[in-house]
């Protein structure tokens, strides 16, 4: 039960890419919050969350993404989630958050 977050600046796409690995839960969610905060402080740009290696997320993790989404809207930037596993996709759909964070285009 741990969370490891890799992040890098994709300068061509003008996006922060975040690759969380493991579980985002009530114990590890602050790690996501701090990472998002630090990156946006460095440079305000879009964020791409690649959930390929994320096994689990709960409402505390989703809440942090919603919070960041709210703050980023002021600067016209957005958060997108890609490659969620089936259990996480289901959670995004039932909460309606897929409509905000999953980019179908």
């Amino acid at each position: 039960m741990s969370l490891d977050i890799k992040s890098y600046d994709n300068e061509d796409a003008r996006k922060w890419i975040l690759e969380p690995k493991g579980d985002i839960d009530i114990a590890s969610a602050t790690q996501l919050k701090e990472t998002l905060g630090n990156l946006l402080e460095k440079k305000a740009q879009d964020i791409l969350l690649d959930f390929r290696q994320l096994d689990y997320i709960d409402s505390t993790g989703l809440g942090i993404i919603i919070g960041a989404h709210g703050k980023m809207k002021e600067s016209g930037n957005r958060i997108t989630i890609i490659n969620p596993k089936a259990n996480i996709q289901k959670l995004l759909v039932i909460t309606g958050l897929d409509k905000i964070f999953i980019d179908l285009s």
């Binding site: 409402s59 909460t95 309606g96 905000i100």
Partner: peptide, 20 residues
Amino acid sequence: EPDINCPKEGGLGIFIIKSL
């Protein structure tokens, strides 16, 4: 219940429990 047009950081937990 959470409003998708105005998503908030809290209040999702109970909704998730009821859904699942």
